Computed example of a mutant assay.
Amino acid sequence: MSDIRFDGRVAIVTGAGGGLGRCHALELARRGAKVVINDLGASMDGSGGSSEAAEAVVKEIEAMGGEAMANGSSVADEAGVKKMIDDTMEKWGRIDILIANAGILRDKSFSKMTIQDIDLVLAVHLRGTFLPVHAAWNIMKEQNYGRIVVTTSSTGLYGNFGQANYGGGKLGVVGMMNTLKIEGAKNDIKVNAVCPVAATRMTEGLMPPEALEQLKPEYVTPGVMNLVKDDAPTGMILSAGAGAFSMARIVETRGAYVGQGDELTAEAVAAKWDEITDTSKTLPAFTSGGQHGANMFSLVAEGKGQG
């Protein structure tokens, strides 16, 4: 199997001053990419800011003989994101890879969560993914090449107490990916999601030390490299942690046709509930909303004796 290389590629990694982002950036540089280290340098709840962390990663890359530049823009700020993209293009003339990794936490039970807690987390995770991707999108289209990774979470996919704001943002980026994989296909833009389980500043207080030791952020990065390589998949959610990897999917049961008009009542749906929720008849994962609709109409046709 040939080595995965990124020679001649230019990559932007947001939130790359530490944790997962730093590991992604260092590995891209080791494999030949020129890397923009974006990091606001804020505390875990998003307050404050400093360029020291990003500058330190740049020095690490330069020490290994690579090329990198630091950027301190907030991914939630339109002007700051524009500057990041403009500076990258001015220095290197292209953008091939974008890994949207920046994140903050404002964990609270939903009853105690403030509107500010909701707005700030959604701004960084959801808006802070949309803005860099949107700013780089037409550049990638004109190049006929782009590799994008958004960062989701098991909280978004499955839930976690005290993280309604975080989970909403993290599942939101999956919805974004699902459309962009379709829109980017003709221009060789591939868009994937990583669902990491890693010991970072955001998780260090949530797990015992023995678990954290196995969940090194560098154990996630090899999977991410496979999501941004030339022959990467598209539209995939890759779960990664402790050196183990799996693929997450949104699946749907075959379902059932209940009826239309007067025969369609809440009681009629209840009568077919077991068939509607029969997980032994799970369909292959849909790759577009159109396939979802097609399944519904095929159920109708069968139910009406037209199938």
Rank of each mutant, 00 (worst) to 15 (best):
L180C: 02
K34N: 05
P284D: 05
K141D: 09
M207Y: 12
A76Q: 08
Q291F: 08
D230H: 12
P217L: 14
N178T: 08
S246Q: 07
N71P: 06
A294Y: 15
E55Y: 05
G48P: 09
N187E: 13
I61L: 08
P233D: 09
L212F: 09
K190C: 09
A79R: 14
Q214H: 08
P132R: 00
M207L: 11
V228G: 03
S239N: 15
G172D: 01
K170W: 15
S47L: 03
S109V: 15
S43E: 14
Y219S: 13
L126R: 04
Y166L: 00
D119R: 14
D119G: 05
D3F: 04
A123S: 11
S109Y: 06
Y166G: 08
R106N: 10
L131P: 01
T279D: 14
R254Q: 13
N187W: 13
V133I: 10
M236F: 13
G289A: 14
E67L: 08
D96M: 12
T287K: 09
R9P: 07
E78W: 14
Q291A: 08
R249K: 15
M225S: 06
R106M: 03
E60N: 07
L20V: 10
P196S: 04
S109Q: 14
G167D: 04
V35F: 05
V58A: 05
E204F: 11
F130P: 11
H24W: 11
M247I: 14
M44H: 13
K112M: 14
R147T: 00
V36Y: 01
M44P: 13
N144G: 10
A193G: 00
V150R: 09
D117K: 13
D262T: 09
E213G: 01
A54T: 09
A11R: 07
E78R: 06
G307P: 05
H125Q: 05
S2E: 09
M236T: 05
